[in-house]
Amino acid sequence: MHGDDTRPWTFYAFAAFFTLFVLFLYGPMIVIYILSFQGPNGGMTFPMNGVSLHWFSALVSQTRVGDIAGSFVRSLGLAAMVAVITVVLAVLAGLAFRRRFRGSAFAFYLAIASLIMPGLFVGLGIALTFRLLGLPTEWFTTGLGAQLTWTLPFGLLIMFAVLGRFNRSYEEAAIDLGASNWQKVKEVTLPILLPGIIGVALFGFTLSYDEIARTALAAGAKNTLPLEIWAMTTNVTSPTLYAVGAVTTIVSFIVIVLSLGSIALVQRRRAAAGARTE
């Protein structure tokens, strides 16, 4: 099925199926972005009753919809913190797992258990722990910790994939040429791993920015943006909800495009390198 010029009929069947799937993925999302421009008198579904930015302005002006602006700022800050911590800790741990060490199985299964544990339970556990310890829960302490139990294992798995393709002789060559351990990491290992590390940061940021299950019970009094939106779904019945959705998705897209753009930039510079030197 490769190398001949005519496509088998199954290709077209699969292509149609794939197109439907992509429509299924994006269709509903696109609809709510359209509906967020609903006229001031429009409802939550079609038809469009005019086109306006009414619901976007309502986001900032109406107090009734809650603390959107505040939660938005909190979520961005939290996501940035999570991304930085995830990159540092996951890269370090990924490097550690290249050697055999006692306790590696424990560390690995701890991470996997943390990854597949239902998120709400993690939040519940953190809330209970801090309650028993008499400590307050805050978005920037317990909320941060709760999200890390999700982003760190993810980051670690990405690092496994990245390091699995990393040719160790680059590091040996550096040592051979007189690099110290630190010079080796700084001059060779990290630059070569850079695309993967950007990937870890991207995942850390967006997983945190959209996280709800773990954060719900661990974030304390002040909501993150997804929690704020979650609260809105039960009491807001206007296209404001869609406007929030459009804004938050735009933020996600900016982050994704920036990350993928920088990965592509790095990759393009050494596009064919893998084929020849790995």
Binding site: N167, S169, Y170, E172, A173, A174, D176, L177, G178, A179, S180, Q183, E187, V188, P191, I192, L194, V266, R269, R270, A273, G274, R276, T277, E278
Partner: peptide
Amino acid sequence: MMFQSYALFPHRSVLDNVAFALKM
């Protein structure tokens, strides 16, 4: 050492690869 696949650093120019040991 000359490595089997050469292990030339893919992110550095040819000149910087050759000069690497002196930089270190």
